[in-house]
């Protein structure tokens, strides 16, 4: 059976890989350049001076943005509009309520299981499924 001719795109992609591969002169030059750049970046990444400088710039940019967010929230307060911090507070409260409902459902299950167990004991039937592991009362940290 004749081998299927590869697509033009396949040949182009393979050609690019080959052209910059370590076995061709262009590839050798590319690999040398890659090694040089890697070495340079490694030195830069390990330089205390560079890291302090880059960190300083990043921190200044972050603090400026944090200050902008704060100013924005102050303006929103002025117009009695909800801010993103207040929305976060609200989300936190909703999450707490969700946790409480969850803990309550566990407690309810424990009660039902205890009831089933006592009913089974009274009837002399088979034991119900084992209770949920863990302490139901401590499901939600306060």
């Amino acid at each position: 059976m004749a081998k299927k001719e590869p697509k033009l795109l396949t040949r182009v992609v393979k050609g690019l890989g080959h052209w910059l591969g370590p076995e061709t002169p262009t590839g050798k030059a590319f690999v040398a350049a890659e090694k040089g750049m890697t070495k340079a970046f490694d030195r830069l990444g390990g330089s205390e001076r560079y890291l302090n400088l880059a960190g300083g710039v990043l921190n200044r940019a972050l603090r400026a943005r944090a200050a902008y967010v704060e100013a924005q929230e102050n303006w929103l307060h002025l117009f009695r509009l909800p801010t993103s911090t207040e929305m976060d507070d609200l989300r936190e409260e909703v999450r707490d309520v969700k946790y409480q409902i969850e803990a309550l459902s566990y407690q309810l299950e424990a009660v039902i299981e205890a009831l089933e167990k006592s009913r089974a004991l009274a009837q002399g039937g088979e034991a119900p499924r084992p209770p949920a592991p863990g302490n139901t009362a401590t499901d939600r940290p306060s």
Partner: peptide, 17 residues
Amino acid sequence: EWTKPNRFDVDALVDAY
């Protein structure tokens, strides 16, 4: 190395974003 306290103000990042 990158996250040393003098180089990376994580509070500012979380407050900002």
